[in-house]
Every structure is written in C-alpha cells, then in structure tokens.
Design a protein around this nucleic acid. Structure first.
Lengths: 109, 109
DNA sequence: ATAATACATCAAGATATCTTGATGTGACAT
DNA sequence: ATGTCACATCAAGATATCTTGATGTATTAT
C-alpha cells in the first residue's frame, strides 16, 4: 500500500511530471533539468529524490555530473502510457523544445 | 496537465485507494463504504468527491442512497492495472472480506 | 408537517508538502 | 591544499491536504 501511495504521490505534482516527460526522451543531468524547467537547483534535486524514492527513476554518477533516467523496470514502465495525454500539453511541448535546442551546463556533458 | 495531476493526486491517498479497490468489485453506497472502512461519513464523502472530481468514479442517486461506481470510460480504466499489486495488501483483503460478509445500511439497498 | 435516514458541505485544527536560501558533500582542476 | 563546479540536504516559512465535528440538503416514512 505504502509503495503504491508513494508512486502516485510522486506523480501528483506538475514539476515532477515535467521531469518524467523530459526523461522519456533520454537521460539528463540535474543542470540540464534546472535550465530547462527554469527552477532552482535545490528544487529540482528534491523532486528528483522523490521520483527516485518512488522507483520511477534512477541515477548514475559520471564525474561531477549525476545523470537521471527513467527506471527501465517493467512495473515502472507501466505508468508511462498514463502520461500520454501530456504530450499535447503546452508546457510539456515547450520543455521538450528547450532540451532539443539547448543542452548541457558549462562544458560537458 | 491539471487533469493529470488531479488524477494522480486522487490516487495518492490510502483511503481513496481502498475505496477504488472496493468499487472494483461493484457498485457501493456511502453507508456501505463507511462501515467497511470504519470511518466517519464526512470523511468518506470527501474522498468520494475527490475521486469523482478526478473522473475515477461516478455516482447515481437511488432514493435516499447514492451509489458510487468506477467510471467505465476507457481512459479511466487504464489506471486499474496499476492497482493490481494492492490485491496482496492485507488491508485491501480485509476490506473485501468485510464487503462480502456484511452489507447495506439499515434496510436497503 | 414532522421526523428520520443518507449524504454533502463547511469550519477549524493537525499534518504534510512545496519552495527558497543557506550550508554540506564529492569530484575535478590547478 | 585550495578553489570550483555539480549536486544533495537542511531549515523555515508558505501552501495545500486531511480529519473531525457541526450544519445543511434531499428523500422517504409517518
């Protein structure tokens, strides 16, 4: 029960939905997310930790950067179809365009 | 976006998950839910209105009673598979057993 | 009309969640 | 070792959510 509640609570926030939708297109580091979503770094980090706690995403450290991606597990992937309606959302569209055009922090990745 | 957030927020609460899982087995009125979940009536009513607002359930008045059931719409039904893990939850099991054994308010339904 | 039942809604306090700014940690360069 | 960059975590205030008890509404019975 606790696990299920945690999952849905994690998804019940616009910022976290934006993050998940961005990660659908592939791995991203925290600095990319902060610049795409135009939010403070601590705010992004907190939401990432909630998503991670819910089992929706996982992280991978590469040097100074920490990359986040969607959890590839079957159970987690079942959630994504429910997020399909967001594809037509204006904010989601803009977020994606931002990631495609711009990228990265200072130098890499 | 608002719609999606509302949906997941509605599902991110143990009481509401218990209600949804009970309604999976069929229509129930408010008094049946209050006695099954052992909660005050206003509490149940509030959670029902949140689930209804999220489009997960619908209501039907029959005399003094108001019956609630899962929304039969395709989009709504897509959520139910994600609730499958709850079948093994102790609380969910007990809730179901209660509904099967006991029933109803005073006289009908 | 009066009373009773089933339910909805409101108000207020308790609890949890979100946001911001500051501080802490780990990796890398000099 | 010192500094810097990317990120995590903490503390505090703002906001939202949940619970309880009281009140309001609709329907039925008498």
């Amino acid at each position: 029960m606790k696990t299920t509640v945690r999952l849905f609570k994690a998804l019940g926030d616009p910022t976290r939905l934006r993050i998940v939708k961005l990660l659908e297109s592939g791995e991203l580091c925290v600095c990319q997310l902060t610049s795409a979503l135009q939010m403070g770094q601590s705010r992004i980090s907190r939401h990432l930790s909630i998503l991670k706690e819910a089992g929706l995403i996982e992280d991978r450290r590469q040097g100074k950067w920490v990359h986040y991606r969607l959890n590839p597990e079957k159970e987690t992937r079942k959630v994504l179809p429910l997020l399909k309606p967001l594809d037509s959302d204006i904010i989601i569209k803009k977020d994606r365009m931002y990631i495609v055009s711009v990228s990265s922090c200072s130098t890499e990745p």
